[in-house]
Nucleic acid binder design. Sequence first.
DNA 1: GACCATGTTCCTAC
DNA 2: GGTAGGAACATGGT
Length: 266
Amino acid sequence: MPELPDVEGFRRVAEEAVKRQVRAVHVHDAQVLRDSSAEEFADALRRRYVAEPSRHGKWLMVPTASSAGGSPAAPWVLLHFGMTGSLRWCEHDAELHPHDRVVFDFADGELRYRDMRKLTGLHLAREQDEVDRQLDELGPDALEVGRDEFTERLTRTRRRIKPALMDQSIIAGLGNLCADEILWRSRINPARAATDLTSGEFGRVHGDMRSMLRQAIRVGRVPDRASWLTGHRDEPDPHCPRCSTALSRGRVGGRSTLWCPHCQPE
DNA sequence: GACCATGTTCCTAC
DNA sequence: GGTAGGAACATGGT
């Protein structure tokens, strides 16, 4: 699941816990902790209060405070969801899922980090510096970046447009599904060189990116509607929702790619 | 068993 | 140095 719209959904889930005190942290699988042991992680967060979470690209950042309304401070929990991660608010008596790797326990419920494949995980940032260092590796958030900076950053590279869009250091937040969806809306072939796009085409991609993300955020994930390209990914013989041409499948930048050969010509 | 999967990082080759 | 391709990571679905 997790691309920008999904992580924005998880941010809203994390908001449930704001001002609540962490009673305990149960680490069921320490493999998802990237830079701390289960003990360090749990000890650092126990009795801290959750402060306002923020999102940048596919990263969710949760600061803590020493009192319910206290100012956001270290330690922070930085969450990445890989390909299969999620965050959910659960009642205490809800049965533990086999993929619930870390549970944050509060008086009236719990926050669960669930992840099947464990490709990424949770970071404990003990100082503001560590949060900044993580953010430094990311480009501007896909929802925040303006048209001019968007164009400027993407024309700096000689790569193809799809892998460039998905490069988190250029623009943060877009994954495989979002990239395909945006390029289909903009009628741009995913294998075209980024430097080959005109200024008008970049304007279109930027606008389509924003509207696509806003619509997806409303439902907290990338929808699988029939009117969206993404809604046809898993079909054996998918057709373009716009012109009914048989869709093409291939690999671009090492990722499975779906596009319409009629709407998105080379 | 083979192949595929919404992500990231590391290695090699051109 | 930039770019592309492949493998690795860990797990499950078809």
